[in-house]
C-alpha cells in the first residue's frame, strides 16, 4: 500500500517536473524564435512607418508609431517597378531550375545505371566544379560572355552578355554538379531489378530513363527543385556582374534601385526587401517538407 502511495506521489512529482521542464522548453524556444524573427519583424514594423515621422521623433527607429500604413509598399510596387523585376526573376529562375533538373537527372541516370569505367571520375569532376567559388571565374567569364555570339531571339545584342539566357546558363552550369551528385546517389538506392525487368520487356535506354527512373525520383526532384529555386532566386552576384541593363535585372539586384543617389529612405528599403523575400518565404511554407528532406537527400546509400 505504501508502495502504491509512493508510486502515486512519484508520478505526480514526475508530471509536475515534466510540466516544468516542458514550460521551460517553451519559454526557451519562444525566446529563440523571437531572436531569430527579430530582424524580420523589425523590418516589417519599419516598413509600415512614414520616414518623416521616424526622423521627427528623437528616438528615431526605436520610437512608437503615430501612423502605420502600407504606403511604402505601394511606392515600391509602383515607383520601384516591382512587377517587371518579379517577372525578370521568374524568367531566370524557372527555366534555370527546369534545365538543371533535366540535365543533372540525365547525368545521374547514366552514372548510376551504366558502368563504363570512369563513372566515379566523372562524378568527382562534376562535384569538384561545385567547390569552385564563382568569384574566381568572373573575369574570364565576363570576357567570354562578351565574345560568345548568341542569335537574335535569345539575345538582343548578339552576345551572351546582358542576356537572360546568359544568366540561366550560368546558374544551370553551377548547380548541375551538386544536383548530379545528389540524384545519382538517390538513383543508386532504386532496385536494379526494375531496370532489368524493363530491359527484358524491350525498353530502350530513353524509355527506361523517362518511364521507369524519372517517376521514381520525383521526390528527389521536388526536394532539389525547392532548394534550387531558393538558391537561384537569391542570387545577386551573377545578376550584378553579367547585366548592364537596369530593366533586365532580377529583383535581388533591383533592390538597389530603392537607394537614391544621395538620399535613401530606410522605410522604403525595408518594404522592398520584405517584398523581395515574400516568394521564398511562401515557397518554403508550402514545400517545407521537401526542403527538409532535401537537406538529407542522398546522404545515406541504400
Amino acid at each position: 500500500m505504501s508502495v502504491t502511495v509512493m508510486a502515486g506521489q512519484r508520478t505526480a512529482h514526475n508530471v509536475a517536473r515534466r510540466r516544468l521542464s516542458r514550460g521551460a522548453l517553451y519559454v526557451f524556444l519562444t525566446v529563440l524564435a523571437l531572436i531569430f524573427l527579430w530582424p524580420l519583424l523589425y523590418a516589417a514594423y519599419t516598413s509600415l512607418r512614414p520616414y518623416g515621422e521616424v526622423v521627427a521623433n528623437p528616438n528615431g527607429f526605436f520610437s512608437t508609431p503615430a501612423t502605420l500604413n502600407l504606403n511604402n509598399y505601394f511606392f515600391v510596387w509602383n515607383g520601384g517597378n516591382y512587377p517587371q523585376f518579379y517577372l525578370n526573376t521568374a524568367l531566370i529562375t524557372i527555366p534555370a531550375v527546369i534545365l538543371t533538373l533535366w540535365i543533372s537527372s540525365m547525368v545521374a541516370f547514366t552514372i548510376s545505371r551504366f558502368n563504363w569505367g570512369f563513372n566515379m571520375l566523372v562524378l568527382m569532376i562534376f562535384t569538384a566544379g561545385n567547390l569552385l567559388p564563382p568569384q574566381v571565374i568572373i573575369v574570364p567569364l565576363y570576357r567570354l560572355y562578351n565574345l560568345i555570339p548568341v542569335p537574335a531571339p535569345l539575345s538582343d545584342n548578339g552576345l551572351m552578355y546582358d542576356q537572360i539566357i546568359g544568366l540561366i546558363l550560368i546558374h544551370t552550369t553551377f548547380q548541375t554538379g551538386f544536383c548530379s551528385f545528389v540524384l545519382s546517389n538517390y538513383m543508386k538506392t532504386l532496385s536494379k531489378e526494375l531496370v532489368e525487368a524493363a530491359m527484358i520487356d524491350g525498353a530502350g535506354v530513353f524509355t527506361i530513363y523517362a518511364r521507369v527512373i524519372m517517376p521514381l525520383v520525383r521526390p528527389a526532384l521536388a526536394a532539389l527543385g525547392t532548394l534550387l529555386f531558393v538558391w537561384i532566386y537569391n542570387d545577386f552576384f551573377w545578376s550584378v556582374m553579367l547585366f548592364k541593363s537596369g530593366d533586365k535585372r532580377p529583383i535581388t539586384a533591383a533592390l538597389n534601385n530603392l537607394q537614391g543617389t544621395f538620399f535613401t529612405d530606410p522605410t522604403v528599403v525595408a518594404a522592398g526587401s520584405l517584398m523581395a523575400a515574400i516568394p521564398t518565404i511562401v515557397l518554403y511554407l508550402i514545400l517545407q517538407r521537401y526542403f527538409i528532406s532535401g537537406l538529407t537527400l542522398g546522404s545515406a546509400k541504400g
Partner: peptide, 21 residues
C-alpha cells in the same frame, strides 16, 4: 533609356564602358 541605380552604375562603370555600353 537604360536606367541603372546610381551606385551600381558607378560600381560597374569599368565593365560597362569596356563591354557594350
Amino acid at each position: 533609356t537604360n536606367t541603372v541605380d546610381h551606385n551600381t552604375f558607378q560600381d560597374q562603370i569599368n565593365n560597362y564602358l569596356g563591354a557594350t555600353p
